[in-house]
């Protein structure tokens, strides 16, 4: 099994930490992982993206030009990464702020309206965990118990009381994700 993922959105949306939790979940599942941020002078409101690779085998390049899955959380990232999903691959996006919806017909497209759902749950900070839950519903690459273990590893101990809330958000993400169009 090898899953090559790009997660892209605004700085401050929790893109990097979502990637980190996913990578840690992979470690908990005894997989090889890499987490490569497009680090830069960008700050809150700028763009942020991270490449996460989960694999049963040794990982070669942490830098990729095409992805099995693109998780897209703003319009700039849609413009940049929709074309880089491998044919037959998966694109997951949050419709909030998207003015041009994905157009490709050779990939599977899902929509997870995590911004709206997080607001409804009165837990805006769990936005990225709703997205993660949506992703795991579509691509169950790691077991839920390993995700919880990954959360524990990547959150400092003083935030461990927030883990149940994050678990709830992950579950909710799995419920609200919708198919938009599938490859025939």
């Amino acid at each position: 099994m090898k899953e090559e993922i790009i997660i892209a959105g605004f700085g401050g949306q929790g893109v990097l930490s979502m990637g980190k939790i996913l990578a840690y979940s992979g470690v908990m599942q005894d997989m090889e992982v890499s987490w490569m941020p497009a680090y830069g002078p960008e700050m809150r409101g700028g763009t942020a993206n991270v490449t996460v690779i989960l694999s049963d085998e040794r990982i070669s390049s942490p830098i990729l030009h095409e992805y099995d899955t693109a998780i897209i959380l703003n319009q700039q990232s849609m413009d940049k990464f929709e074309k880089d999903v491998k044919p037959g691959g998966t694109l997951i996006y949050d419709g909030n702020g998207i003015t041009r919806h994905p157009e490709r017909t050779d990939i599977n497209i899902y929509r997870v309206d995590a911004t709206a759902e997080a607001a409804r749950m009165h837990a805006v900070k769990t936005f990225n965990m709703i997205v993660l839950g949506g992703y795991l519903q579509v691509k169950p690459v790691v077991e839920m118990e390993n995700v919880v273990a990954g959360l524990k590893k990547s959150l400092p101990e003083r935030h461990h009381h927030l883990i149940p809330m994050n678990e709830k958000a992950i579950t909710r993400g799995g419920e609200v994700i919708k198919e938009v169009s599938m490859v025939k």
Binding site: V27, V33, S34, W35, M36, P37, I59, P62
Partner: peptide, 10 residues
């Protein structure tokens, strides 16, 4: 370099 410095691995 910045890739190896900034990336996370096991």
């Amino acid at each position: 370099d910045g890739v190896i410095g900034q990336m996370m691995e096991k």
